[in-house]
Design a protein around this nucleic acid. Sequence first.
DNA 1: TTGAAAGCGCTAACAG
DNA 2: CTGTTAGCGCTTTCAA
Lengths: 339, 339
Amino acid sequence: MAPKIKDVAKQAGVSVTTVSRVLNGEKYVKDDLKARVKRAIDELGYAPSHIARSLVRKKTNLIGVIVPDLTSSFYSTILSSIEETASLNDYNLLVCNIIEDTDKEFKYLNVFNEMRVDGIIIMHEKLNDEIRAFLNKLDIPIIFSSVRPSDQTFLSVIIDDYAAAFDATHYLIELGHQRIGFIGGDMRDVTSGQNRYIGYRGALSERNIPIVDEYIRFGDYKIQSGYNLMKEILACGTHPTAIFAVSDDMAVGAMNCVHDHQLKVPDDISIIGFDGSQLTELVRPQLSSMEQPIQDMGKVTVETLLDLISGDAETPKEDIILKHKLVVRNSCGPYREDK
Amino acid sequence: MAPKIKDVAKQAGVSVTTVSRVLNGEKYVKDDLKARVKRAIDELGYAPSHIARSLVRKKTNLIGVIVPDLTSSFYSTILSSIEETASLNDYNLLVCNIIEDTDKEFKYLNVFNEMRVDGIIIMHEKLNDEIRAFLNKLDIPIIFSSVRPSDQTFLSVIIDDYAAAFDATHYLIELGHQRIGFIGGDMRDVTSGQNRYIGYRGALSERNIPIVDEYIRFGDYKIQSGYNLMKEILACGTHPTAIFAVSDDMAVGAMNCVHDHQLKVPDDISIIGFDGSQLTELVRPQLSSMEQPIQDMGKVTVETLLDLISGDAETPKEDIILKHKLVVRNSCGPYREDK
DNA sequence: TTGAAAGCGCTAACAG
DNA sequence: CTGTTAGCGCTTTCAA
């Protein structure tokens, strides 16, 4: 059995209180006692039980994180940033990978509650009623990262998805494209689904470019989905000369589809992605993308959550909007007459 | 403050023991009491404290996981599988992303210890002396996944890296290639560094194909590294007609480099990767790869660790070797005279 | 400066 | 079947 504080006390010939004091770096301990305690700790290889500490301190230094898909380049990167920031602040991550599995999510939320985690980070916005109700009853600070659920009860760290989608589409228009297709997300998602779609339409409307329903498809943000939707779009009579996909994954899927149809990106079809994931630099041609500040998003999410946890007065009441940024690589070219 | 078991007991007019009993699904509780307790739990929105339970049960249902790089396709996939299996068995994951940061790893290992996690999964093999010593003193079950550290103290779930590398190289030879380059890993790593290298050499030797040092480079498994090493190899007078890269990431980097030099895969150079990560199907041409059973590896790792934790007699004393598998896609072609 | 003792929220003998 | 009670390993008054 691992040694306990009592064993250390005995070994050092002091009371447990004194041991506790040196453990917690308190001042009022004479140097010689402190030294004896430290030696005893070393000799016994003692490590304080975080469990016992949590019980009395009512603080676990645990953050529960709900990720939609660990294997996605976007989420794994943001998670990595979350982990880094948490670690820097002496917090640890309990991660749950829910793959569209609502039951699993609910179960984990319950576990987080029982674990008495200090805070919860959620990275998807498809909350069902059961979960929404549960979340509202929970008195654990909750923050959403990269998404905002439809009700405004919780704080979110996001970008302005409407503006970002608008700007991405605008970029394609500026390149001279008129037939611009849209590979969208889930319209049940406000931020990544609806807002990006509206932004796309907004940019076209502003220039009086007709909106062609045939060029517009919705999927699930994944590569395969991008591939399939692109296939449908290519089946249109005169297909678009440019595509705006609302995730890099979908954009890559679309690129692959174009490739498999013996067409060239960007010569035949320009494609712009969204997110700024690692994929952008990994594919050929490299993917231009409307990028979210992924690293920063993770960092800000954790820092804001920690403020929420510590009950800091300065904690923002409104969503935190980070800046998006167009990063041009090689997947978009000017419109060419002959195509 | 969240309600405690005592509150439930009072509300239901029973003792805390009875509440504890229905909480733990014990038999000897009369139905009417059971019903009253359940109602009280609902009314109060009571959730038992995992902290308190852990303290008395001496079991946390926590598994600490050390991942070298969360954003890597290989590790995020295996982590995803680990998470799934753990969740199925009511275990939760504490994840630590160490990015070649030994201090962070040491710190986390200490945290795992203080948290009294029930088991630890480690996915890298570069243990320094300090960490090795710490691990040996720890009396928490530890298992290595996808790697095996040089000393045999701990159990590993791996493939036969020598055989896999041999087979991959052999495949290229069968395609008629004689000038076969090698993009390797870190030679301090026994499994993914040394064994794969020896396997490569073994396959060449078997056919009496001379080993050309110029065609052999070592890196860090990442895309950028593969890119850079390929660049060096292409700078050789007569460059190889085929490349074996010991990670899919490096293989993709090499492919990109070939592409950026206006050469074609596989027409000019064949490339085979290693791992079987998601990247293989995402790039064009799709990458042939010597695949590890990633999903299964995560699953087996957790299941074996759980056996270790429960002290099952059947727990294997020797490393668990899973089967590798060559998956042919479009990145390797037959040797052509004209190239 | 130091220590004794109460208690964090729960489980598990041990009685009844 | 049900309740009393003693801890689990630590922090924290409160006294000394």
